[in-house]
Design a protein around this nucleic acid. Structure first.
Lengths: 247, 247
DNA sequence: CTTAACAGGTCAACGGTGTTGTCATAAGGT
DNA sequence: ACCTTATGACAACACCGTTGACCTGTTAAG
């Protein structure tokens, strides 16, 4: 079978499907995203995608070597979309907060792609652009280089990790998802105070808090720690920590 | 078929498999963990597990209602193992730091299982014990109830999320893993300063920092933000934030 | 000790999945 | 107008989770 997948630039013969659709990488990615949005993450399968496109499932293998390839293409598109709608204001803290929330929301909108893309470095255009932008925000705010990289790393990984985590729960079958919320109400909220005093004392808060994502809270904690660090650095610029920008 | 799954305590008739194995919930969970470790998360299927146990796949449905149930049992076993080796000292911050690092290390030790279990609420014995313990640490430190739950939630989810994230990268094929590290050296470190000034300025730090986990840094940021919050609460106990313990 | 109930292991089947080898045909360059 | 070949279609393979019906050894009651 030599090479099954042809680079998009080399594609010339646009031959329509039996059902009259002209396939393309873009159309496939767009249709996959639509499928995920409309019928949930578990609705995305090669066969279903083929059916939705009006093409034989095996046709897709002319465009993507396997399902993972397709997922990465979807993920790349998502990074681009997130970055494109983000507008920095100049206030580093609220800019990062906004970007973090957008990245998280983008991941939740496309759970399966988020889980796959969270732990991969692509080195592609959109990713590079994101790195440059975030580092710029931090350095312009006054963080020394080593500190800027440290905080950039924690910030990005936190967004990706929570994006993947929360995506995974939304990708669960509906029944399991309802079950999770029920556990806090049915199991935890009913534990007796004499055996589990701390759970019993906070039961009300647990039931309210636990079924929601903790990403906003975690993000705010990270940003406020970073802000405290920055204040410290500004107060005594040469001896703020173990290292400075010039180390 | 009435009820297929019997509670473990009510099990009496220990009838061996055709191949001579006596099944039990424990044996099934242990075998599943072994399978995951040896052949990867995708190697865990009801059929493969049955084969590894020396039993018909459908036998497992006498012990777990469906695959999800089995996953929860596996997750809980992992929580138990981590909790069992943790010893609190009474200093909330270093206790949580220690526990966080242990959870993260535990996830890395069982990469494929960690990814599966990170996003599930089991409601089983070990998980309940962990919730009670951590909430106790926070409340004893002086956090009001709502704040304790908020920080507990962020702390636990962050540990699980980074555990899953870092596990996923270690679970990559060796070649892909080396490739990821190479991207920072080969692509990012070579970007010209005039188009990507911030990346160029921090390239040295990026190459050193990015291939390592950012979890310790993220954990320290979270804990130091929590400590700052606690100091604030202690200074003006009734008006520290939007809410107090008695809201 | 015998015996009847039934827990629990087995079998076969259903409808789904990703993926591949082979074939047919229409598009495009010549 | 012809020939090449890109690309879509088809059929098949090996998996997957799950279920209903069946069979049999264990156990408790008599």
């Amino acid at each position: 079978m030599s090479e099954r997948v042809v680079p998009p630039t080399a594609r010339r013969r646009r031959r329509p499907t039996k059902q009259g659709v002209v396939l393309s990488e873009e159309l496939i990615v767009a249709t996959a995203l639509r499928l995920i949005e409309e019928h949930g993450a578990e609705a995305l399968s090669v066969r279903r995608l083929g059916r939705a496109l009006g093409a034989d499932p095996s046709s897709l293998y002319r465009y993507f070597r396997h399902t993972d390839d397709l997922m990465l293409a979807i993920a790349d598109e998502l990074i681009g979309r997130t970055l494109r709608i983000w507008r920095p204001t100049g206030d580093w803290r609220s800019d990062l907060r906004d970007l973090g929330l957008r990245m998280h929301a983008g991941a939740l909108a496309h759970p399966r792609a988020a889980v796959l893309s969270s732990y991969r470095v692509t080195g592609r255009a959109y990713e590079i652009q994101a790195v440059e932008t975030i580092l710029g925000v931090l350095r312009d705010a006054g963080f020394p280089d080593a500190e800027a990289v440290r905080i950039y790393h924690a910030f990005v990984d936190q967004s990706l990790a929570f994006g993947a985590l929360d995506s995974a729960s939304t990708a669960l079958p509906k029944s399991a998802q309802e079950g999770e919320a029920g556990v806090w109400r049915a199991t935890y909220a009913r534990l007796p105070a004499d055996t589990h005093p701390h759970i019993a004392a906070t039961a009300r808060h647990l039931v309210a808090d636990m079924p929601r994502s903790s990403y906003p809270a975690a993000l705010d904690l990270l940003l406020s720690a970073a802000a405290a660090r920055l204040a410290e650095i500004r107060a005594r610029p040469r001896a703020a920590g173990e290292r400075t920008a010039a180390d």
